[in-house]
Design a protein around this nucleic acid. Structure first.
Lengths: 218, 218
DNA sequence: TGTACATCAGTGAACGCGCGTTCACTGATGTAC
DNA sequence: TGTACATCAGTGAACGCGCGTTCACTGATGTAC
């Protein structure tokens, strides 16, 4: 019956996506729903921005499942959020790694810029995700966990190290340069996030380049 | 009767502060409660961090009044939040202005550093407030409104301008230098906000000084 | 090959909670006569 | 000077809502015999 509601016990307020009735996963594949849930959560966060917009019931709605079904994959809401943060860190890391890999290995400066540009684009395009990652990150403090800011910073530090070894002279130590540029990049995108006059991606990337120029000697 | 509850229709969960019975303000002084409410909201935000922790009922509880009383001073919750943001911007501006005024007028570099240090301290000490200010700021985009990031940046730009006129040479234009250092400062405090290994105020201030050194020639 | 059954993916209904908001009110106090 | 009254600061109780979570369940499907 077209238009028939699947029986939620609460009204679906935003009728936008009627969400075709989900086909149940086959026997051994119960875990597939887990990533579908994370993708749904990611969509919800992107559309509504702000962690408080990510509710168990809202994500269930977006995934087209019953709220109770969440509990087969996440013990509680906090674990759902942690899962989402890990998912996002992996997306960011992958975007930076790909930007790096796509350039010739010898173009060390180009790879450095490309990584920082990928970082900027990710943050500009996903403000809600970025805020979530910032305020819910792991407490590890080591670069071991690839899902941490420390690991992202380590990628940038590596890129600076390659530049220095290739003969590009820095005005400060490698790790200081990396922190300065990374932190400056973050500051730029974060500070101007909600400013409607400043959503010009190109200007942000130009600022990042300006920062990079500042730490190199020449 | 000591210990007697004033009749809230919901239970007060955190019994911490029994909040002595408020004395009603005299006739013409109804507005005094407005600032008491803002101060209570400020306390709630500082203690619980995060905008979603600031609820009408929670603030009313902290102020020792009935939830309904909020509506004589704020038309709805959104206006309470706006009021809180304005209140916070004024606090930040005042802290920076005082840091500047306390030094001899001729010590232009000291005044610049003092302003940025005051900014950093405010952000480090009030993470919840700072996040609220960032994500709920005015859309003006002009420095006219003293309660905006633009106005704060304008203060920093002025300070850099004074340094340059006093003979300190910059490697980039005054407004670029101001943006870079301001944005870098913001990035540093914001990025490391929730990192327990990095709550050392002195290290943050040293980073800010390092940034300042970087934009000056020499 | 046929069938009983355990397993598995997912559900429906209900719960108690704190929230924002409304509305008719209370009682003290300054003011008009 | 005395008193009726309008004004003002602030309240108590109730509302409907969406939330996170629990629990007993359903029904399809692979497996053991």
């Amino acid at each position: 019956v077209p238009g028939a509601r699947n029986g939620h016990d609460d009204l679906v307020v935003t009728e936008e996506t009627p969400e075709a009735q989900r086909a149940r996963n086959p026997r051994g594949q119960g875990d597939r729903l887990r990533v579908e849930i994370l993708q749904a959560a990611s969509r919800v966060l992107a559309e509504l921005g702000g962690e408080q917009a990510v509710t168990l019931r809202g994500v269930a709605r977006a995934a087209g499942i019953a709220p109770a079904s969440m509990y087969q994959h996440f013990v509680d809401k906090a674990e759902l959020i942690r899962g989402l943060v890990d998912y996002d860190f992996e997306e960011l890391r992958a975007a930076m790694a790909e930007a790096d890999a796509v350039r010739p290995a010898t173009d060390v400066m180009g790879r450095l810029r490309a990584q920082l540009h990928a970082y900027s684009r990710f943050v500009l395009d996903n403000p809600g995700h970025y805020r979530l990652m910032l305020h819910n990150r792991r407490r590890t403090g080591t670069a071991d966990d690839p899902r941490s800011m420390t690991a992202i910073l380590a990628m940038v530090t590596d890129a600076f190290g390659r530049c220095e070894r290739a003969g590009h002279r820095l005005r400060v130590a490698v790790d200081r340069a990396a922190v300065m540029v990374f932190v400056g990049t973050h500051g730029r995108v974060a500070l101007y996030h909600s400013d409607p006059h400043d959503h010009d991606t190109e200007r942000v990337l130009a600022f990042v380049d300006e920062l990079i120029d500042l730490v190199f000697d020449e």
